Amino acid sequence: MIFSLNELVHWLGLTIFEIWINLVSLTIFTILLAMKIDNNYFAGNGGWWIIFSPLFIGDGLNTYFCAIIFIRMQMDGVMKSAILRALWSLTFLLLVFVFKYLLCKKLSGQSSLEYSEVLSPVFILLQLIAVRACQLH
């Protein structure tokens, strides 16, 4: 089952620009990951942090974009919608960031967390998306 772009925008609560930023950062991350796995580039202590850096930069850009949208919605006088959108976007970005951070720490050997603990932000995010999808229909 392939979802349409409109369904993804409604269910995830992201704009097309935010989805585009995530796709670009994920593409760069995938190229860096393939380089590490294939030729063992980025060996050393900071290797995984370098590979995950495009994802962290994408999160930062999305947070900046959400702040701009929040300010513009406030200036337009749509306070309730602005607060709800900002709350959802920041929750989404925070959970994704925490997952990436914990995964990077686990892969680099800086943490002794189990993978179920590392994936817990993703489980919470999936539950929130399921609730949001039920509210929209």
Score class of each variant (00 low, 15 high):
Asp59Leu: 14
Ile37Gly: 00
Lys106Met: 10
Ile21Cys: 03
Ile83Met: 08
Met73Ile: 00
His10Glu: 15
Glu114Gly: 14
Glu117Cys: 07
Tyr41Glu: 05
Leu128Pro: 09
Asp38Trp: 15
Phe92Ala: 01
Phe29Asn: 03
Ile83Trp: 13
Met35Ser: 10
Ile28Phe: 06
Leu107Trp: 10
Cys134Glu: 15
Glu18Val: 05
Gln135Phe: 14
Leu90Asp: 04
Leu84Pro: 02
Asn40Thr: 04
Leu136Asp: 13
Val118Asn: 04
Phe17Ala: 13
Leu84His: 10
Glu18His: 05
Ala86Val: 00
Val96Phe: 09
Ser111Trp: 05
Ser89Lys: 01
Ile51Gly: 04
Ile57Val: 14
Gly77Ala: 04
Phe99Gln: 03
Phe65Tyr: 13
Phe123Ile: 11
His137Lys: 10
Gly13Thr: 06
Tyr41Pro: 00
Ala86Thr: 00
Ile51Phe: 03
Trp49His: 13
Ile31Trp: 10
Leu119Ala: 15
Ala82Asp: 01
Met75Asp: 08
Val98Pro: 04
Thr91Asp: 00
Ala82Arg: 00
Phe52Glu: 08
Lys36Tyr: 09
Ile2Ser: 02
Val131Ile: 14
Ser111Cys: 08
Gly44Trp: 04
Gly44Ile: 02
Ile124Pro: 04
Lys36Trp: 05
Ile129Ala: 02
Glu7Val: 05
Ser108Asn: 11
Ile71Pro: 01
Ser89Glu: 03
Leu5Val: 11
Trp20Lys: 10
Ile28Gln: 06
Leu90Ile: 06
Leu5Asp: 08
Lys80Val: 03
Pro54Gln: 12
Phe99Ile: 00
Leu55Trp: 02
Pro54Trp: 13
Arg132Phe: 02
Phe65Asn: 11
Trp11Ser: 03
Leu126Trp: 07
Ile51Asp: 07
Ala133Lys: 15
Leu12Met: 11
Ala67Asp: 01
Met1Asn: 07
Leu12Trp: 09
Ile50Tyr: 10
Ser116Val: 08
Leu23Asp: 12
Val96Trp: 06
Asp76Leu: 01
Lys105Gln: 15
Ile19Glu: 12
Leu14Lys: 04
Gln74Phe: 12
Trp48Asp: 08
Glu7Pro: 03
Ile16Gly: 06
Gln127His: 12
Ile57Arg: 07
Asp76Phe: 00
Trp49Glu: 13
Leu26Phe: 10
Val98Thr: 13
Val98Asp: 09
Val131Pro: 02
Ser111Thr: 13
Leu126Glu: 09
Glu18Ser: 11
